[in-house]
Design a protein around this nucleic acid. Structure first.
Length: 426
RNA sequence: GAGGCCGUAGCUCAACGGUAGAGCACCGGGCUGUGGCCCCGGGUGUUGCGGGUUCGAGUCCCGUCGGCCUCCCCA
């Protein structure tokens, strides 16, 4: 059996890595401008954290986590999402005592044991953004706008492959009534539901709302909407969000059947869907989790957040197309040094260091191959310039600078090199 | 976790149940101080893996691993 990567775990070849780096950098810049602070949480947490946060009966916890025993018999889980870990961090280090709102972001891999397909991996990267503090609709809209801004950043202005869907799940004051209603109403229609939805009835009836089966959709269409059950506060809150979104000219769709797979959400939840992704089209999703921190043993601290799926985002932006030129350029050296002979190699070793200190991206060939062969290699690497340092040049403290695009070359003093190369750096 | 399609060289793909091939890439040479173009030469392979049927399997059957699609679920 050939050695291969674990199913659903992907290598990033340079051409892939450069795309992800580029997107992460764009997001990072935007988040820092909004004064979000980058943090890091562990890949591994105690299983209990996810059971208590995401919910014991959710699909994620029941069948999608990588959970195993440590050597000391403790149950550990590879994080399937970042919010729980960040809440734990906030509680453990008393960060809730810092000036609020707390604004954090984190970029890293998440793990879910699902059947892989396009846009769905077992190890996937999220850009996770969390916002904790007294929440007014202004903060929520600020965050929604930020999410959309980040997603659209790498696209030209006329392109917008993203749609924002929002809904409100109500709060502990009003959601139980809707849940009760759902249970009663669906119990009567039980026979018309699909098998999975019959099971959901006892476990997580809200999830039946976004079942994709036509038979279930029909049943769901006959139900009263969740909005009819919102309490006065939730209703007002949602109205405020809507009017602010309109004020900001942010297009949105109200999806009354939008629910989430994680138990901790209350009130506003949202998904941003992208084009060209197939069945896995949610690029970004999030919502409010006002009581999670308290439930995990911290103070009452309302919060909201979202996560961008990096690989899905990249599919939206780059599709199946070739690497854009500005990124393929980044994989190329500005110059390649070809020293000929032992003495030249020694001189070359110090020269490349000096040039790198001055910000020139340079690679060197120290092999005993023909000049021809090494020039060919330099060409394949896409080097703009080649520096040839042979014995003749060395005697005069000079070097040959060859412009690979023009095919011209000149001999100049080594100490003139930096000046000649510095303007040409990409 | 359920169903469907697929798996041949590094890549894209051919090969009726009868000797595993092409293009690109790669390696060597033409050309030991000058790249791209060109010419010559090289197939680089456990046909994903393991069984079975057959005189004979890349091809048919079963299992398994992996990919894609749908479901499930979600980023």
């Amino acid at each position: 059996m050939k050695l291969q990567a674990v199913r659903g775990f992907k290598d990033w070849l340079p051409e892939e890595a450069i795309k992800y780096q580029y997107l992460i950098e764009l997001a990072r810049r935007e988040l820092k401008l909004a004064n979000f602070q980058e943090i890091k949480i562990p890949v591994l947490e105690k299983t209990e954290l996810f059971v208590r946060s995401i919910g014991e009966v959710t699909d994620i916890v029941q069948k999608e986590t990588y959970t195993f025993e440590d050597r000391n018999k403790e149950l550990l889980t590879l994080r399937p999402e970042a919010t729980a870990g960040i809440c734990r961090m906030v509680i453990e280090h008393g960060l809730y005592m810092r000036p609020k709102p707390l604004k954090f972001f984190f970029v890293g891999p998440m793990f879910r044991h699902e059947r892989p397909q396009k846009g769905r991996l077992r190890e996937f990267f999220q850009i996770d953004v969390e916002f904790m503090g007294n929440l007014t609709p202004y903060y929520e809209v600020e965050l929604l706008e930020l999410a959309l801004k980040i997603l659209k950043k790498p696209l030209s202005q006329d392109k917008d492959p993203f749609t924002l869907e929002i809904n409100s799940l109500g709060c502990p004051a009003c959601r139980p009534a809707f849940r009760e209603y759902l249970l009663q109403a669906l119990e009567k229609e039980k026979e018309r539901l699909c098998e999975t939805c019959k099971e959901r009835l006892s476990r997580n009836p809200l999830r039946i709302l976004d079942c994709k089966k036509e038979q279930c959709k029909e049943v769901v269409r006959g139900l009263r909407a969740i909005s009819e059950f919102w309490c006065k506060e939730c209703k007002g809150h949602f109205e405020a969000i809507k009017s602010l979104l309109e004020e900001r000219k942010i297009l949105y769709v109200i999806n009354p059947y939008l629910v989430r797979g994680l138990d901790y959400y209350v009130r506003t939840i949202f998904e941003i869907k992208g084009e060209g992704l197939g069945a896995q089209d949610t690029v970004c999703a999030g919502g409010r989790y006002d009581f999670l921190i308290k439930e995990l043993g911290g103070p009452e601290l309302p919060a909201t957040g979202f996560a961008i799926g990096l690989e899905r985002w990249a599919l939206c932006i780059f599709g199946e197309k070739d690497l854009p030129e500005h990124l393929s350029e980044e994989l190329k050296p500005n110059a390649v040094l070809i020293p000929l002979g032992e003495e030249a190699k020694l001189r070359g070793l110090s020269l490349i260091n000096d040039l790198r200190d001055k910000g020139i991206k340079i690679s060197a060939f120290f092999e005993d191959r023909s000049l021809k062969a090494m020039l060919r290699e330099a060409d394949k690497l896409g080097a703009s310039f080649v520096l040839i340092l042979g014995e003749e040049e060395l005697k005069e403290d000079k070097i040959v600078l060859k412009d690979m695009k023009r095919g011209t070359q000149e001999k100049l003093f080594i100490n003139e090199l930096f000046e000649r190369l510095s303007g040409t750096s990409q």
